[in-house]
């Protein structure tokens, strides 16, 4: 029997083991290894795979393909456009500005943009678009209602109650039912003009139109070339005053060229040139009779 002499085992950890264990017991390091490393590995694999441009393009192509397949399913296709609330003329205009090549996928329709395009038309006040089930693109249109005829620099045009352009017009007689306004800046004061027209209802048959003067006040033009010069402020009240005078004294029926109300404190009447002569003659003869 031979005694085998073994070197005594050293239970002490080596410096490296000791340091590694201490490092491992450091909370931050531990967290980084246990959570950070797997996370980094999981993120790195797809990142490496995608670092190739061809693969990226291939995947993008596949995604686009699937997307197209879904979009072009018959459930999503739009086959026709129905326009409601528009006259034939306007409907034709709308079809012209919205060139759609039916059938088209509803994903390709930019309803917001189409709505803006339709509302950009003069005759359209508001448009409402929706894709109805059954593949119908429904377009509800509210047209502008012409309220006045505006004689501007470019010719005759129809304006609505807010002064927006509706459509050009060939001749005045086509819309003889609407009042006529003229003058520079008249289209920007249409509401006031309409109020004046409404106030002038008692002399409606004599009214020829309204003329904007100096972009601040209105002249009411009657037949026989009579004018009522209204102030910039409280024009309606001034006009009502003139109409009231007319009602009592038939003022407008006399040979007067201009009723000037520009200064409300001092209304002035200008007679027609012939009437002035006539008036003088009457004054003279009247004076002669009494004196002579």
């Amino acid at each position: 029997m031979c005694a085998v002499i073994l070197p005594p085992r050293d239970p002490a950890p080596s410096r490296l083991t000791y340091r590694m264990q201490r490092l491992w017991l450091t909370p931050l390091f531990r967290l980084a290894v246990l959570r950070g490393l797997p996370l980094a590995a999981v993120l790195a694999i797809p990142a490496l795979w995608f670092s190739d441009a061809d693969r990226r393009a291939e995947v993008a192509g596949q995604i686009a393909d699937i997307r197209r397949q879904v979009e072009t399913r018959p459930e999503f296709m739009v086959k026709l456009m129905a326009i409601e609330g528009a006259t034939d003329l306007v409907a034709e205009d709308i079809r012209e500005v919205l060139p759609l090549d039916f059938p088209v996928s509803s994903f390709d329709l930019d309803l917001q943009q189409m709505r803006r395009t339709a509302e950009a038309l003069d005759a359209v006040e508001a448009a409402e678009l929706r894709v109805r089930p059954g593949g119908v693109l429904e377009l509800k249109v509210v047209e502008r209602v012409p309220a006045v005829v505006w004689r501007g620099a470019a010719g005759l045009e129809l304006l609505d109650a807010q002064g927006n352009r509706v459509a050009p017009i060939e001749t005045r007689s086509l819309r003889a039912d609407l009042p006529l306004i003229a003058g520079e800046g008249a289209q920007r004061a249409v509401p006031e003009a309409l109020a004046l027209v409404a106030a002038a209802a008692p002399i409606e048959e004599r009214l020829r139109g309204l003329v904007r003067v100096g972009e601040r006040r209105w002249d009411v033009v009657l037949d026989r070339n009579q004018r009522i010069l209204l102030p910039g402020q409280d024009a309606v009240a001034a006009l009502e005053r003139v109409i009231a005078l007319d009602g009592v004294t038939d003022m407008l029926g006399r040979d007067i060229a201009v009723v000037d109300l520009r200064n409300p404190g001092r209304p002035t009447v200008r007679l027609a040139p012939d009437a002035v002569e006539e008036f003088r003659k009457i004054r003279r003869s009247g004076a002669g009779a009494t004196n002579g």
């Binding site: 002490a12 950890p13 000791y18 264990q21």
Partner: peptide, 18 residues
């Protein structure tokens, strides 16, 4: 030093704290 290291390491291991 090795003996101290042994003791400290074992105690740390039991405590699970550095």
């Amino acid at each position: 030093e090795r003996a101290i290291r042994t003791a400290v390491q074992a105690a740390q291991k039991m405590a699970q704290v550095r």
